[in-house]
Design a protein around this nucleic acid. Structure first.
Lengths: 202, 202
DNA sequence: GTTATTATGTAGACAGTTACTACTTTCTTG
DNA sequence: CAAGAAAGTAGTAACTGTCTACATAATAAC
């Protein structure tokens, strides 16, 4: 019997099913068996797609980096002639993405997840996303927008700032998490302004 | 028998014993039973000090925020008349702290850990640490170093940037983790310069 | 089209884990 | 020094990760 002995897309289904669980119960509370049951599949099935629980978490992190890359690319398409707007737009889109999916962002920049063998797929996703951000910075550099700072330094600074800000907003640690979108946008604009023109007086 | 039926400081011992395990095996690989065995104590003992595994992780996060607060206070003491040096020093000290203890920093800004009941002790540690950083910023504001930006915006921006940079260095995601201290310091200096004077050319 | 091969899912088992409960020992303090 | 709180022990139920052997389905080769 079993019209669908094969699930068809169990890998993707596992990733999607894990998200609400992570949001509600965190990494510790996530169980592969529970996911399997929820998807109506035997408890061993997930191991056909993920070597272990950590591998699933890393796969989720990959989706986050892919999203970051998409966001950067879209920003470049939307403002092909305005690298500063590219950067601002990408930053704000990323902040809203993290606000909507904090559990994904939580897994992205984390030394303590694998730490054993380096996950090539994850490393590659990181590199691609960073590359897209670097392209935005390079666009600006070609127009002499960023002084003589090194591209990598600018990438590091902007990515750190945006990701950190996004995590603070998502985690509600420093900011009222009930902030309306408009106030998040206002905060983003102020931080972007500081980032661009410096903490020191203008 | 049992000269030491009571361990004496099991809570602290658990926190310390957890660190190398976290560094080696990550959150998923940490087990309270293993810690108990390692400390020569029964498997139920840890639950006298921590409601569950997550509570232990949060306690470790608290130590991280306490360290951040100490770093800020020390910087203020060391350079009582130079708020910019206070900020730079605190930032670099924090970066080296994270490089030495990535597994602690990994637990600090994490929306997905508790997410159920808010941990008061953790929240308080966050507030204290942020307060110390805000004091450094305020010192600078009183000397008109930071234009008319809001203190909270400056705190958010600098903390995000420094923490993000520290995590990247600790995780070796964007930078060669084998970088000697000197090159980490050089990188920190460049990023601090960008943060202070802006990505845009000076 | 039948047949090998590979991908995917199942069933069972084992060791290890969380977290609870009831009990014992030690420390503290009135 | 006695009473009560704090800390540790022992046992256990339910669950989890992960392995292995097996079954089924999809694919590709012939």
């Amino acid at each position: 019997m079993s019209k669908n002995y094969h699930h068809g897309s169990l890998r993707q289904a596992l990733i999607e099913a894990a998200l609400p669980v992570l949001k509600k119960k965190g990494i510790v509370g996530l169980s592969l068996r529970e996911l399997a049951a929820e998807l109506g599949v035997s408890h061993g099935a997930p191991y056909r797609h993920f070597k272990n629980k950590t591998a699933l978490l890393e796969a989720i992190a990959v989706t986050g980096f892919n999203a970051l890359q998409d966001i950067c690319r879209k920003a470049m398409q939307d403002f092909p002639d305005d690298p500063r707007q590219q950067l601002y737009q990408a930053g704000m889109d990323y902040i809203f993405y993290v606000a909507r999916n904090p559990e994904i962002a939580d897994l992205m920049f984390r030394p303590g997840l694998s730490r054993e063998e380096s996950n090539t797929e994850l490393q590659q996703a990181v590199n691609s996303a960073v590359g897209s951000l670097a392209a935005i910075i390079e666009n600006g550099k070609q127009r002499k927008l960023y002084g003589d700072h090194q591209t990598m330094d600018l990438v590091l600074t902007s990515l750190s700032t945006v990701h950190g800000l996004a995590m603070f907003i998502a985690g509600g640690m420093l900011i009222d998490p009930a902030s309306p979108e408009s106030s998040i946008e206002a905060l983003g604009k102020r931080v972007y302004n500081i980032l661009l023109h410096g903490m020191a007086g203008e």
